[in-house]
């Protein structure tokens, strides 16, 4: 099993008091499998994704990726996980504004020590970014920026790709185009894909779907 999340709990402490987001979520994902995580706003989808990506830690429960327990890892361990094992695509693209497109694509794989310029060039080509490699992110359209973000995520060949509403900021045609490219590339790489989405149509393109309601997996 590539990913196993068991009895995940998470509470945020806000000015208005504690706010429990996840209340005992269980989840599993095989290598090569794609899973859509759906649910209403505030149901805890993004939080669960962040916990699985090692961006945050659960208050309770266990997250195993490739048989490694994320909750037991320190900051350095989780950073290493993010560099090499997991790749995250965000809704807001979150590219590094000071680096050119080519450097953004190569950034994570170089950090992971797995830089493969040929693979990077191939990714850029398939994403239609070859003509934009020397540009800065802000010089690109939203769709182009999201393609750069996906290329960056796939460049180190992660075992697990996490995507948080990756097409949420894009128009329908661009979203469809970007989504197709991502699904093809993930399948080619044999990675697992966990995607948070509101879109039923998008969710139906993935192999499986899990719905969250009020911090729990809906029956």
């Amino acid at each position: 099993m590539l990913l196993t999340a068991t009895d995940i709990h998470k509470t945020f402490h806000t000015a208005d008091g504690p706010f429990t987001v996840l209340r005992g979520v269980d989840l599993a994902l095989e290598a090569g499998e794609s899973l859509a995580l759906t649910g209403e706003s505030g149901s805890g989808k993004s939080t669960l994704l962040h916990l699985i990506g090692g961006l945050d830690t659960p208050d309770q429960g266990q997250i195993m990726i490739n048989s490694a327990d994320i909750a037991a890892m320190d900051d350095n361990g989780r950073a290493a996980l993010r560099r090499g094992t997991v790749g995250v695509v965000f809704q807001q693209f979150n590219l590094i504004p000071s680096l050119r497109v080519a450097d953004n694509i190569a950034f994570q794989s170089r950090l992971a020590g797995r830089d493969d310029p040929k693979w990077n060039a191939d990714l850029a080509d398939r994403m239609g970014l070859t003509a934009h490699l020397r540009k800065y992110p802000e010089q690109l359209s939203g769709g182009q920026q999201q393609r750069v973000a996906i290329a960056r995520t796939l460049a180190p060949r992660p075992k697990l790709v996490l995507a948080d509403e990756p097409t949420g900021n894009l128009d329908e045609a661009t979203a469809d185009d970007v989504m197709s490219l991502m699904l093809d590339l993930v399948a080619d790489a044999g990675a697992g894909l966990l995607m948070v989405t509101h879109s039923i149509a998008l969710a139906e393109r993935l192999s499986r779907r899990v719905h969250l309601r009020a911090g729990q997996v809906a029956a």
Partner: peptide, 12 residues
């Protein structure tokens, strides 16, 4: 916002 992406992709 400028540092978070670097952190998200593996810097501590």
């Amino acid at each position: 916002p400028q540092l978070s992406p670097a952190w998200a992709v593996g810097m501590t």
